[in-house]
Design a protein around this nucleic acid. Structure first.
Length: 423
RNA sequence: GGAGAGGUGUCCGAGUGGUCGAAGGUGGCAGUCUCGAAAACUGCUGCACCGUAAGGUGCCGGGAGUUCGAAUCUCCCCCUCUCCGCCA
């Protein structure tokens, strides 16, 4: 959520930044409502002041056993006016908040302007895509041929966009989770195993609600949603808190299953592990000091990259353009892994700095020393990394002509020494 | 799921429908004392909003209500604890 004070102080600046994203934003309406609110507030508060004063008088009179009936009668009228005024203020505040909750974050100035992912800017590349002397197979074919991925059975048991992993496939997924967690823990992240459901307040805190309700699964007859990412429960750990005496950044790593309705993506990536309703992800979350959050974004991105480097998977880093930038984010780097059967790079991690956008929604502040004033923290997160897509990338990049798949060296210990999956 | 107890400031804890933003303690800050520290003593010490300011308004788990006036009374919801039931 943007700061109404910032909008009030320099509306042109805010509009200029938002316009980079394209689309219409109701900044003028917010300003108008804000003006109206302050006007009304003055009137109501004056009435309340009167009520407080006269109530005190009534108390005195009653103590001296005097007659306060006429004063009480007057106050009845004042009280009604206050009630009416309060209702009006509340209504305007709700209107303002509805608009603000639907306005995206302002992009950082070095985010490239663009209409879509085609305008994303490549920052760096790592590794060389392998040359295949034959047509490389897609991971869903490799996985099914090896008997380690079973999409058909998942379709019967649950529905489309779900998968059964079997045997070494299941073990590979589990090994990757442990490998990623261990790697990040050794880098100073504290491990979290969060709830897979979160309430609507938490969803609003990180920005999924109110705008993106259709993208989530809601649990019937409750206020709970299945989490689309561990970012939600982990960021909300510190909701409505003032962090005091902490060393920034606070670093958490969390494995969780993630659930996404994938509304509006019918027909896209329908095969394989790329776009599932349920997938596993190891997520990095940081709470940062506002003055250092962009350094923290760089190091967070590096921490995610390390996983791909250790697995020896070729990838590139792109800076998302305003056309591809998420609602809550001020700046995002995507990690894209090379996928031979797609003959292109595919997103496998997304690392973002939300600045104080989420912190303001979730009310997460910090204090520098006991005398300091509480200020909003900056929140960041990034996939470290998407596990299902990593399995897909390993199957494709490490495939052999005979249909077997070599296990990357970094995870062989986790696989009990197995170095190859064969039929 | 059933029965009960409770949610007050950094924390602990008191609170009569009417000078209660809230006693007392604890913590924090500043000062006195000291070579210095501890102890003791004194003072200060919450947040948000409106306002250039003076100042004002709101906040005692959340919401609604009763009342001229609510931390205090009523209703609904949330959370914590104890006991019982059920359960991996």
């Amino acid at each position: 959520m943007l700061d109404i004070k910032v909008i009030r102080a320099n509306p042109e600046e805010v509009m200029r930044k938002l316009n980079k994203r394209g689309g219409e934003f109701k900044i003028p309406q917010v300003l108008e409502l804000d003006e109206k609110r302050r006007e009304l507030l003055g009137v109501v508060e004056e009435l309340k002041g009167k009520r407080n004063k006269v109530s005190e008088e009534i108390a005195k009179i009653k103590k001296q056993k005097g007659d306060a009936d006429s004063l009480i009668l007057d106050m009845k009228e004042v009280s009604d006016k206050i009630k009416e005024g309060d209702d009006n203020v509340k209504k305007i505040e709700e209107e303002i908040s509805t608009i603000l909750l639907n306005i995206p974050n302002t992009p950082n100035d070095d985010v490239p302007k663009g209409d879509s992912d085609e305008d994303n800017k490549e920052i760096r590349k790592w590794g060389e895509p392998a040359e295949f002397p034959y047509e490389p197979k897609a991971h869903w074919d490799i996985g099914e041929d090896l008997g380690i991925l079973d999409f058909a059975t998942a379709g019967k048991v649950t529905g489309t966009r779900f998968t059964f992993y079997r045997g070494l496939g299941a073990r590979l997924e589990r090994s990757l989770i442990n490998f990623m967690l261990d790697t990040h823990i050794s880098n100073g992240y504290t491990e979290i195993l969060p709830p897979y459901m979160a309430n609507s307040k938490s969803m609003q805190g990180t920005g999924q609600l109110p705008k993106f309700e259709v993208d989530m699964f809601k649990v019937n007859n409750t206020d709970y949603y299945l989490i689309p990412t561990a970012e939600v429960p982990v960021t909300n750990i510190h909701r409505e808190e003032i962090l005091e005496g902490v060393d920034f950044p606070i670093k958490y790593v969390a494995y969780s299953a993630c659930f996404r309705a994938e509304a509006g993506s019918a027909g896209r990536d329908t095969r394989g592990l790329i776009r599932q309703h349920q997938f596993n992800k190891v997520e990095l979350v940081k709470f940062a000091h506002p003055e250092h959050s962009y350094e923290d974004l760089e190091s967070l991105t590096n921490d995610a990259e390390r996983i791909l480097q250790l697995l020896e998977l070729p990838y590139r880093v792109v800076c998302l353009s305003t056309g591809d930038l998420g609602f809550s984010s001020a700046k995002t780097y995507d990690l894209e892994v090379w996928m031979p059967s797609y003959n292109r790079y595919v997103e496998i991690s997304s690392c973002s700095n939300f600045e104080d956008f989420q912190a303001r929604r979730a009310d997460i502040k910090f204090k520098e020393g006991p005398k300091g004033k509480a200020k909003f923290v900056h929140t960041l997160n990034g996939s470290g990394i998407a596990v299902g897509r990593t399995v897909a990338a390993i199957l494709e990049n490490y495939q052999q002509e005979d249909g077997s798949v070599i296990i990357p060296k970094a995870i062989r210990n986790y696989m009990g020494g197995i170095n190859k999956i064969t039929r």
